[in-house]
Design a protein around this nucleic acid. Structure first.
Lengths: 299, 299
DNA sequence: GTGTGTTCATACGCTAGGCGTATAGCAGTC
DNA sequence: GACTGCTATACGCCTAGCGTATGAACACAC
């Protein structure tokens, strides 16, 4: 089988097929004909001697082998791109960067960093998806993953961006109303994924106190907790970046200046590999710098 | 410039050109015509918009850009190979593995491991080059580099294979003749790259003694030192694997059973990257296992 | 200098591999 | 059952890359 296809082009169409779930749509995307796509997929399968996708008349689903190839194909295409753009004299970044970020950070703080990046690089497009749950990175086709807490995938390269400070806050009224009560009896507003019903605070000396609470309200959404807190319903553990303005304005008060919840690490995860497209590399750098400046090492 | 070249094929011929230093020879290697090679190189240069090689009528030398590409090209071709062979049902390894090993280890101990590997995988060829000096890994085109001591290139992936035990040995006669002398006054045979004129020995408790000597003989070749030692000229610090048989036969004697020179780490260095051809991956595993078994963690 | 041998680059058909168009077959939807 | 949208296959076309042949440049020998 002496085929003269460009192997990287085959990978390109394969990735496109995987992303669109259809040969026809891939063909439209790539500005070619559907039979061409069909032939290319067949050629790739012949070449690798493996079935990459199950075709029915109405959809295309990758086989496990196809899924495995998808990851490698994306990486190799990225590497080729890095090679091609290394010597392109216009150093203007371009293309799309796919980012997955946690909901809370992604819709407020981080999106400002991303916006700045887009301003700095007008030809760059960002696909900004907000998700808090663990993702199947390899299948998503995303370039970088911002994650609060540990990254549950040890095949990825992880860079720590910051460790965010979290403090106990409440409205002045709320705090005054419960001033005489011990900590554990406050009306706690707890954020599901982090606290559950167990609160752990420690002072700068490192000595910790741990106690269980029956939350006034529990939620998996930080904005809900925040709003309830503003309403004076109770006290909550919130990251400093989230309530910095309110602290300045006195709307919320640091209830226990000596006590802090454990810092939450914010990580940046990338697919492993030696070379990445410049736009991805630069975006990651920008995010890192931005975190250092905005969140600080003590943010 | 709508070219239909297979980009990976372009990289392949480019690497071949770099290795052979000639378009014509590359053409012969690849079983094609010289004009074809010429066109491919030109196409790659056009595509990347960079001059990769200076051609004179009698030789081809890579530009710095070409040298940079060479590294990436080798990596990408390796990755493609890994993809292709992942699903090849015959799990027989094949192809050539290029290894650079230290002279002493490479011509005796390690070559046995390599031999075993070739026996286990008949279709594998090994290009076994022995060099003690630091190499420009990226330019050499080698797959793995066995190195005594630290690997002076932090772009490489390093795996420690063993830490070899080194002891003071001499012939029984030689040791008897100098039995009354303090260590530092023995007729030392020193191995240049490691000892110089400064001997450092420590006991199992960790306390060390250091002294300078004026060597009876100094050399950068372990076999020379070894032969002189066998001749009874003096005492030498030699690795256990090197003189294990002689110790058993009583030809050489462990002069200071309580004292040992610092263990020398033996490392395996690889080009970074996520996927390597199976033969390389398996060879490295084999070497690691072999080292564990033959040299042991206390070898 | 001249000759010889080697190198790389270019010119010129040729050929075959990949393209698009057209069509067939199939599955789900209305 | 007609319709729609999908993938696979057949068929001719077209061109990109091939090999052959040739030319220019350089190295070395004499």
């Amino acid at each position: 089988m002496n085929t003269r296809f460009d192997r990287l082009a085959l990978l390109e169409t394969f990735v496109r097929i995987a992303e669109r779930g259809s040969l026809s749509e891939a063909a439209r995307d790539l500005g070619t004909s559907q039979p061409s796509i069909s032939r290319q997929l067949a050629a790739l399968e012949t070449r690798l001697d493996v079935v990459l996708a199950r075709r029915t008349t109405h959809d295309v689903t990758l086989t496990p082998d196809g899924l495995a190839l998808l990851e490698d194909a994306r990486r190799m295409l990225g590497e080729w791109e890095a090679i091609e753009e290394r010597h392109s004299e216009d150093d203007a970044l371009k293309g799309v960067i796919r980012v997955i970020a946690p909901v809370a950070l992604g819709q407020s703080l981080f999106v400002r960093a991303a916006s700045q990046f887009m301003k700095d690089h007008p030809s760059v497009t960002i696909d900004w998806r907000l998700r808090d749950d663990a993702i199947r990175f390899a299948e998503e086709g995303c370039d970088c993953w911002l994650k609060i807490g540990a990254v549950p995938d040890d095949t990825l390269v992880v860079r720590e961006l910051a460790r965010v400070e979290r403090l106990v806050v409440g409205t002045p009224e709320c705090l005054a109303a419960h001033a005489t009560q011990p900590l554990k009896d406050l009306p706690w507003l707890t954020l599901g994924p982090f606290e559950g019903n167990r609160i752990e605070l420690s002072n700068s000396g490192g000595s910790a106190q741990v106690f269980s609470v029956t939350p006034k309200m529990a939620s998996d959404n930080i904005f809900a907790i925040y709003e309830a807190c503003l309403e004076g319903v109770g006290v909550a553990i919130l990251p400093r970046w989230f309530i910095a303005d309110d602290l300045v304005q006195g709307i919320l008060i640091d209830a226990e200046p000596d006590l802090r919840a454990a810092r939450l690490p914010v990580n940046l995860a990338l697919a492993p590999g030696t070379k990445r497209p410049a736009r991805v590399e630069r975006f990651c750098e920008a995010i890192q710098v931005w975190c250092r400046d905005q969140l600080g090492s003590s943010a």
